[in-house]
Write a protein that binds this DNA or RNA. Structure first.
Lengths: 118, 118
DNA sequence: TCCTTAGTTCAAAAGTTATTGAACAATTGG
DNA sequence: CCAATTGTTCAATAACTTTTGAACTAAGGA
C-alpha cells in the first residue's frame, strides 16, 4: 500500500511550477513548510477545500514530486519533499515559501487537532 | 501606445508560478534571462511557436508582471522585470532560471538576427 | 501612395483542470 | 461483527487554457 511518487531526477520544473500556481496547493505547501517535521494527515487541510477536492490537490502535489504521502493505517501522512526539491532545484522552494508567506491573499489553515490511528 | 502592466506590488505569486508553469513561457523567460540587457522583439521567439501563439504567451507573461513590453515603432521590445520580481519575490527568478538552465527538456531558441526599426 | 513588416484581435476548436456528490475501500475501535 | 473514520475513485459538469487561421492595425520604407 505505497503510493506512486516520482524519483528526484524525474521531478520536472514546469510541472512543479504549474502545480504551485494554484492558490489551494500553494496554501498546502505553505502550511506543510510551517509545520516541517510534524506529521500531517489530509484532514488537517480541510479548511482549504472539500475532502474530495483535497484528495485531488494532494495527488497533484504528490505526482509532481512536491510532497510525499506515507500510508499509516487509514491516514496518509503528508510531508514536503524538501531535500529532494532542494537537490533538484536549489533555492526554489525557499523562495516560493518566503514569497507565499508575504502574500496577503493566501487562505489560512486551521489546526483541527486530530488523533492519528495506526 | 503603452501596454498595460501590473505594478510591482500587484504581482501575484500564484499567477507568476502558473504562468511559468508552461514550457513555452519558461523557455521565453530563460532566453530573456540569457540575453539580459539586449533588446528583443517578439520575432526572436518564433522558434517557440507561431506568431499568434507567441502573442498570446507574451501577453500572459506581461500581464503577470514577469516581462515588460515597450512599443518601439512596429516592434515590442521585451525585457524581464528582474528588479521588480527580485523586490517582490527575492530569489525566485534566480532559482527558476538556474533550474530551467539545468532542464534537459527545454526547447532551444534561435538567433534570427533582425533589424529594429523605430 | 502602396507595399512590407511587426504584431494584435477575434472566434472557433480542442484540450486540460477544478469542483462536486455519491459510492466505495480499508482500517480501527467497541 | 458492526460502526465510525480516513481517504479514494468515478462520472458529470463547469470553467479555464491553448492553439489555430483569417482579418486586422500601425508604422516605416520605396
Amino acid at each position: 500500500m505505497t503510493l506512486p511518487h516520482p524519483n528526484t531526477d524525474q521531478i520536472s520544473l514546469p510541472i512543479v511550477l504549474g502545480v504551485l500556481g494554484d492558490p489551494t496547493r500553494l496554501a498546502i505547501v505553505r502550511y506543510l513548510a510551517s509545520k516541517e517535521g510534524v506529521p500531517l494527515n489530509c484532514s488537517q487541510f480541510l479548511d482549504l477545500g472539500s475532502k474530495t477536492n483535497l484528495s485531488y490537490h494532494l495527488a497533484k502535489l504528490r505526482e509532481a514530486g512536491v510532497t510525499r504521502a506515507e500510508v499509516v493505517g487509514t491516514n496518509r501522512m503528508i510531508t514536503l519533499r524538501r531535500a529532494d526539491l532542494d537537490a533538484r532545484f536549489p533555492g526554489l522552494l525557499d523562495s516560493v515559501i518566503a514569497a507565499a508567506g508575504d502574500d496577503r491573499a493566501l487562505p489560512a489553515v486551521g489546526g483541527h487537532d486530530i488523533e492519528i490511528r495506526a
